[in-house]
């Protein structure tokens, strides 16, 4: 089998997903990313780009570095001691690891949703309003109300919570909490949303809601999702990248990765064989 053949260049392959025109410039472009925890190298020279208005799924076995890589994109690795990131991550042509870029501002452009729904122990309203408040995005009370409503609407939660905005965020169900966290991320007007296994703590119905939401959000944002569920990656993403032992093994259109991976290690992983 030949490797490194992008489907676009292979005439025999059917046309890629029409929703994600490959011509669009990438939202984030990573070049030669290396991550070290102390002396151990967790990510080995990963280069990949993330197209705008599309979902990219990162899959791979536990400890393969996909979450670590995801956390490079909003510099959450800064908060971990001994963690060192090398290489370039370009957003609008600027390296986000550059000293001139403050992680706090970066994170307002690159939102993140976590594995376990982690709403703040505050009211639903304050959960959403917190971000716009600290970033000074709202000019007044009405403005803030509008942002809260818009964010909740986009997260598909407005109808469920509009009558109890002052109830604590933790009183919602797990799936609603996760959508609240997504709304919270949306409220600071990011361009990229990172999701670290957002459905691993949810039941299938709540998972389906989130997936539906992701599909909706992809029309506006560049979404990168780490997931353990290959079916989920197959369902929600347009592009899929397979990580193994800190290496990017293969990246391609989701359909191709799941029906006809180029690499044996990808094949073994997605079909559930001994790696």
């Amino acid at each position: 089998m030949d490797t490194d053949h992008r489907p676009q260049t292979d005439g025999a392959v059917v046309a890629p997903d029409a929703d994600a025109p490959p011509a669009a410039p990438p939202r984030i472009d990573c070049r030669d990313i290396r991550v070290f925890y102390g002396a151990t190298q967790a990510i080995h020279n990963v280069s990949m780009s993330f197209p705008d208005r599309a979902v990219t799924a990162l899959i791979g076995p536990s400890g393969c570095g996909k979450s670590t890589f995801l956390r490079c994109l909003n510099r959450m690795n800064d908060t971990i001691e001994n963690c060192r990131v090398e290489g370039q991550i370009l957003m609008d042509g600027q390296d986000i690891n550059d000293h001139s870029i403050d992680a706090v501002l970066l994170r307002s452009r690159v939102g993140m949703v976590f594995q376990k729904p982690n709403p703040f122990p505050k009211s639903i309203y304050d959960n959403i309003a917190y971000g716009p408040r600290i970033h000074g995005l709202a000019s007044g009370r009405e403005d803030l109300d509008a942002i809260v409503e818009k964010s909740l609407r986009r997260a598909g939660l407005w109808e469920e919570v509009k009558d109890r905005l002052q109830a604590p965020g933790t009183s919602l169900s797990g799936g609603q909490q996760q959508r609240l966290c997504i709304a919270r991320a949306i409220a600071v007007r990011p361009e990229v949303i990172l999701m670290d296994e957002p459905c691993s703590a949810l039941d299938p119905v709540a998972t389906a809601r989130i997936e539906e939401l992701i599909d909706e959000l992809r029309k506006r944002y560049c979404i990168v999702i780490v997931t353990h569920s290959m079916q989920q990656a197959a369902r929600v993403s347009q592009r899929t990248a397979f990580f193994h032992l800190g290496n990017l093994i293969e990246m391609g259109e989701t359909e191709q990765i799941f029906t006809n991976p180029r690499e044996k290690r990808t094949e073994d992983y997605i079909t559930g064989r001994y790696g």
């Binding site: 993140m112 982690n118 600290i134 919270r184």
Partner: peptide, 26 residues
Amino acid sequence: PPSVRSGALAIGASQMQTVFHHVVPL
């Protein structure tokens, strides 16, 4: 729980905002 810290950091709170708005009240 560390998830509270990462939640606040991820929406762009500075470390002091994270600590004094979220961690200390809890």
